[in-house]
Each structure stands twice: as structure tokens, then as C-alpha cells.
Design a binder for these strands. Structure first.
Length: 307
DNA sequence: AAAACCCCCAACCGCGCAGCT
DNA sequence: GAGCTGCGCGGTTGGGGGTTT
């Protein structure tokens, strides 16, 4: 059975929006709010498909939208996020306040994609403020694909960390028992334990005291997300339903990465990233600094991935 | 000056997921 | 569980402006 079209195409305007149509749509949404896109055109008196209205609003008319002039920092971030997330434009855009997925996608297709492909990903040339610390290896095209997340079939919003059986792609990470024990000892005795004492759960999510937001980033890295989880998870087919849970208590009990099923602890999930953006970009004035801090985070992660 | 070509990006399209009945 | 709707996502298209010949 075929899916019914979102609307009848007959009698509808297509192509570029006129200023008048924009005005109608803007006014309608100002009064009635977003949503109910299918009925919106009829109610608003627009000869447009609902999807078209939604797209126009989200990509062009929304008041908080920032258009054009993508800064070197933003460009840098897009490249790094794309390396980690692949073509998940909405996620990438979510890390760039005021930017839309469509704009990021277009910018990538017309500028960055070529740059990266040509190996000129150090972008604007005059971007000397934030030189890439580990230029070629992690950004070379062949490695790009190795960290792309394929989410077409399965949208992964939560990650669980379980112990055996490990994902086949992770097996080389579990080398020998001696290495495991050494790693375990490092985890238990290292920075993690100290930080765990200040770690709380918020709705099943890891949360940190405000003054330790920075530490929380370090924690993610020290907690071997880069070495063990992130690269493989980003490379995993989540439909394989390998669930992983990082049980903090078990870590403290020398049962690192033990099976745990009740509360997922997403380490690098969409929610975590969204939350990060929300917290760090809420204040526009600090957006630039936060952009840098996020880039630093990605740099750290990339270093781990490159090891 | 104008034809040909190139490039950008707004808009379109089809599909998948979530939620509801 | 099936069917339907609403919404969001990512790939693709094509109009139009800019550049080259």
C-alpha cells in the first residue's frame, strides 16, 4: 500500500516563496505557533504544501536563525562533527546555534566536502587562531568513512554499555586479560573514581556539578570513550542490538563494564550532545568560547580515535 | 554584448520513525 | 499488530545569479 501524498499538488504554488507568502506564514505562526503543518496552509490561506511551509519556516523564517557568514570556528566544528557523525546534518546543526541542517548540508556540499576531499580541510587559510593539532592522519579521507554513523535504518538515541559479548568490531580492543586488568586498574584508580564521587544521575543521565562541566568532558575521555567506546560505537551498526552500559557502581566494584540493563547511561548520545549544546550555547555571548571548548573536546576525541 | 558554463542554495521529494487509534 | 497521521531527516533538483569565454 502506497503512502498517501502529504498533500494534493494541484493548485499549489511551487518554487520560490514570495515576500507576501512569507508574511502570511510568519504572521500565522506568530499567532498560532508551530505545528499542525498539514492543516496550516489551509488555515493560513497559503497555496502551499504543509511540508513546504514547515521547511520555509525552519530554514528561513524562524527568528533565531543565523544565515550566511559561517565563521572559521563554525567551519572547523562542522568538519569535525561530520567526521564523527557523518551526514547527520540535523545533529551537526544542533551543535551550531542558529544554523539549520539545510544550510550546513549545503555548505558542506558546496565548500567543505570539496575541501576535505582535496585534503585542504584547514579551511579558511587565515584561521590561525585554532590550528589543527593533529592535522593529517585523523582527517584524511580514507579514515572519514570509518567513523561515520549509519543511522538510516536505526535511530540511536541511547547507548548502553554492556560487558561480553563485545561487538565484533570491538574485539581487538579487548586484547589480553593482562591488558584488561591494567586498563581496569587505571580506570578505577584514576581520575574517574574521584570524579564519580561528584557525579549524580539526572533522569538516568550522567550529570555533573556546574563547576565540573569541564571535568565531565575529561571524564568522558578518560573513561575511555575515545579509546574504546566512541570510535567503535560510531562505527557500529546499532541495529545489532548490542547494549552497553557503563555502570558506575560496578566500576567501583572492579566490575568494569558489567551487564546492566535498568538505566541506560548515554555517553555520547544525541541527548548528551543536545544537552551539551543547550547548556553551552544558551548564552550567545559565550557561544564563541563554547564553540572552541567543543572543538577542543572533539580534538581530544579525535586524538583518542587516532591512537 | 551575449552565449555558455558554473555554482550556490532554496525547495522538493521520498522515506523512516513515533505516536495514536 | 495494522493502519494512519504528523513530523523530521537526508538526498536531490533546478532556478537564477555570477563568471568565463
Amino acid at each position: 500500500m502506497g503512502r498517501s501524498p502529504c498533500c494534493s499538488k494541484e493548485g499549489l504554488n511551487r518554487g520560490a516563496w514570495t515576500a507576501h507568502e512569507d508574511k502570511i506564514l510568519r504572521e500565522y505562526i506568530r499567532v498560532h505557533g508551530e505545528g499542525r503543518w498539514r492543516n496550516l496552509p489551509k488555515r493560513a490561506g497559503l497555496k502551499r504544501c504543509g511540508k513546504s511551509c514547515r521547511l520555509r519556516w525552519l530554514n528561513y523564517l524562524r527568528p533565531d536563525i543565523k544565515r550566511g557568514n559561517i565563521s572559521p570556528d563554525e567551519e572547523e566544528l562542522i568538519i569535525r562533527l561530520h567526521k564523527l557523525l557523518g551526514n547527520r546534518w540535523s545533529l551537526i546543526a544542533g551543535r551550531l546555534p542558529g544554523r539549520t541542517d539545510n544550510e550546513i548540508k549545503n555548505y558542506w556540499n558546496t565548500n567543505l566536502g570539496k575541501k576535505v576531499k582535496d585534503g585542504h580541510q584547514t579551511t579558511t587559510g587565515n584561521n590561525t587562531q585554532n590550528p589543527m593539532p593533529n592535522p593529517s592522519p585523523s582527517l584524511s579521507p580514507p579514515k572519514l568513512d570509518s567513523h561515520v554513523v549509519r543511522t538510516k535504518a536505526t535511530k540511536c538515541s541511547k547507548l548502553l554499555f554492556l560487558n561480553p559479548p563485545p561487538h565484533p568490531s570491538m574485539q581487538n580492543k579487548f586484547k589480553t586479560e593482562a591488558e584488561e586488568e591494567e586498563e581496569e586498574a587505571r580506570l578505577v584508580n584514576g581520575v574517574i573514581r574521584n570524579q564519580m564521587e561528584h557525579t549524580t544521575y539526572d533522569n538516568g543521565f550522567l550529570s555533573f556539578p556546574d563547576e565540573e562541566k569541564e571535568l565531565s568532558t575529561d571524564l568522558l575521555i578518560d573513561f575511555n570513550v575515545g579509546d574504546f567506546c566512541l570510535s567503535d560505537l560510531l562505527n557500529s551498526d546499532f541495529s545489532n542490538s548490542y547494549n552497553f552500559s557503563c555502570n558506575i557502581n560496578n566500576v567501583n566494584n572492579h566490575e568494569q563494564l558489567s551487564p546492566c540493563s535498568d538505566q541506560p547511561d548515554p555517553m555520547f548520545s544525541d541527548e548528551v550532545l543536545k544537552d551539551w549544546t543547550h547548556n553551552n550555547f544558551a548564552d550567545e555571548a559565550n557561544a564563541s568560547n563554547n564553540l572552541r571548548s567543543f572543538i577542543s573536546f572533539l580534538e581530544s576525541t579525535e586524538e583518542r580515535l587516532g591512537e
